[in-house]
């Protein structure tokens, strides 16, 4: 099984449950909305009599207690660029693991339009960095031809390198973009966009999706550097 399949399975297995204890129904509804497309189920448990704004208990897919914190701390975790999780005190250095589900966001029923928006977010990071290496794989030949202009522009941007993976037999229109033919069809069964961060861990990002049925995609996007590194290493060693 290639790492694209494995990564997708790992993200699915790490689905978590957030039990939100608060008497503020609006806060609970907001968290439900926010996690609808992320890899977590949210349950609201109204409580009275606690002074605090409320608290959240994180449980694993096995229902085991994985962590618990106040809603104000949780809000800080949700804006990692302001307060990275590792700056929030804990007696064990495992908060990275606790919140890894926030880095790997699973989606099961995205439309092509929603996915394009997510892919664009990663491509824009690469554009702003004007360096590093962007790897993109297309599942359908028409998808590739739709993106030609975008990828030509990305390839011209500063020191940014772009590599596009295509299935055997496709008509490849690119001149400036490096094209790798995935002759075994190992990775072109996925639609993926991976950016190596251009030397900045925080910019590492990736999206991996499978087209399951008409205009419905299943997959994940991630800001987890290890996941991004692993997928890129596979592309570099096994596919290229």
């Amino acid at each position: 099984m290639n790492p694209f399949h494995t990564a997708l399975e790992t993200v699915e297995r790490h689905r978590k449950r957030l039990d939100v204890y608060t008497d503020d129904a609006e806060v609970a509804a907001e968290l439900k909305r926010q996690f609808e497309t992320r890899n977590a189920d949210v349950g609201h448990h109204p409580v009275t009599g606690f002074d605090e704004p409320g608290f959240v208990i994180v449980r694993g897919s096995d229902d085991e207690f994985r962590g618990g914190l106040g809603l104000d701390q949780f809000a800080a975790v949700l804006s990692p660029e302001v307060h990275p999780p590792w700056e929030i005190g804990t007696s064990e250095a495992d908060s990275g693991d606790l919140f890894s589900f926030l880095d790997n966001t699973l989606f099961t029923a995205y439309s092509r339009r929603q996915l394009l928006a997510a892919a664009r977010e990663i491509e824009e990071r690469a554009w702003r960095a004007a360096g590093g290496h962007l790897y993109t794989g297309f599942q359908r030949e028409e998808a590739l031809s739709d993106q030609t202009a975008v990828y030509e522009r990305l390839a011209d941007r500063g020191d940014l390198e772009t590599t596009v993976f295509v299935a055997d037999g496709w008509t490849v229109p690119f001149e400036d973009v490096e094209v790798v033919v995935d002759s075994d069809g190992e990775v072109t069964e996925f639609w993926f966009v991976l950016f190596d961060g251009g030397g900045t861990e925080l910019q590492k990002s990736g999206l991996v999706a499978e087209n399951r049925r008409a205009d419905r995609y299943r997959g994940f996007w991630t800001y987890d550097p290890d996941t991004v590194d692993e997928l890129i290493a596979y592309l570099e060693s096994a596919v290229r």
Partner: peptide, 14 residues
């Protein structure tokens, strides 16, 4: 465990 962590602004671990 969670209420104690919330009061001290930390994260309750397993």
């Amino acid at each position: 465990a969670t209420v104690e962590a919330a009061r001290s602004s930390t994260i309750a671990t397993p």
